[in-house]
Amino acid sequence: MIKVLYISTKSMYQQYKTKPQLSATSDCQDNALQSMDEEKRNETFLADRIPLWLASSGYVVLAAISIGVMPQIFKPLKWYFVLVCYILAPVLAFCNAYGSGLTDWCLVSTYGKLGLFIFSAWAGSHGHGVIAGLAACGVMMVIVGAASDLMQDFRTGYLTRSSPRSMFVSQLVGVGMGCILAPLTFWMFWKAFNIGDPNGEYKAPFAVIFRALIGVEGFSALPTHCLQLCYGFFAFAVVTNLVRDLVPRSISQYIPIPMAMAIPFYIGAYFAIDMLVGTVVVFLWQRVNRKRSEIYVPAVASGFICGDGVWSVPAAILALAKVSPPICMMFVSSKIAGAIQTSIT
Rank of each mutant, 00 (worst) to 15 (best):
V61G: 02
V61N: 01
A63V: 03
A64Q: 06
I65A: 14
I65E: 06
S66Y: 09
I67S: 04
G68F: 12
G68H: 12
V69Y: 13
V69C: 09
V69F: 14
V69G: 02
V69H: 08
P71F: 06
P71M: 08
P71H: 08
Q72D: 07
F74R: 03
F74A: 13
F74Y: 15
F74K: 05
K75R: 12
K75V: 11
K75I: 10
P76D: 05
P76G: 07
L77N: 06
K78S: 05
K78R: 12
K78N: 04
K78D: 03
K78E: 08
W79C: 08
Y80L: 05
F81S: 03
F81L: 03
V82M: 01
V82L: 01
V82F: 00
L83H: 03
L83P: 02
V84E: 06
C85A: 08
C85E: 00
C85K: 01
C85H: 00
C85Q: 01
L88I: 10
L88E: 02
A89R: 02
A89E: 04
A89K: 02
A89P: 03
P90Y: 05
V91C: 13
V91S: 12
L92R: 00
L92G: 03
A93D: 04
A93C: 08
C95H: 09
C95W: 11
N96R: 05
N96G: 06
N96V: 11
A97I: 07
A97E: 06
S100T: 15
G101C: 09
L102G: 10
L102Q: 13
L102I: 11
T103W: 10
T103C: 13
T103R: 12
T103Y: 09
D104G: 09
D104W: 15
W105R: 13
W105F: 14
C106M: 12
C106T: 14
L107R: 05
V108T: 15
S109V: 12
S109Q: 15
S109F: 14
Y111E: 10
G112N: 11
G112W: 11
K113T: 14
K113G: 15
K113C: 13
K113Q: 14
L114D: 05
L114P: 04
L114T: 11
G115T: 07
G115Y: 10
L116V: 07
F117S: 09
F117A: 12
I118K: 01
I118P: 00
F119M: 06
F119E: 01
F119R: 02
S120I: 00
A121Q: 13
W122Q: 04
W122V: 10
W122H: 06
W122P: 00
A123N: 06
A123R: 07
G124W: 09
G124F: 07
S125T: 13
S125D: 14
H126G: 14
H126N: 14
H126P: 00
G127E: 10
G127N: 11
V130P: 02
V130L: 11
I131M: 13
I131E: 15
A132W: 02
A132Q: 02
G133K: 04
G133N: 05
G133C: 06
L134R: 07
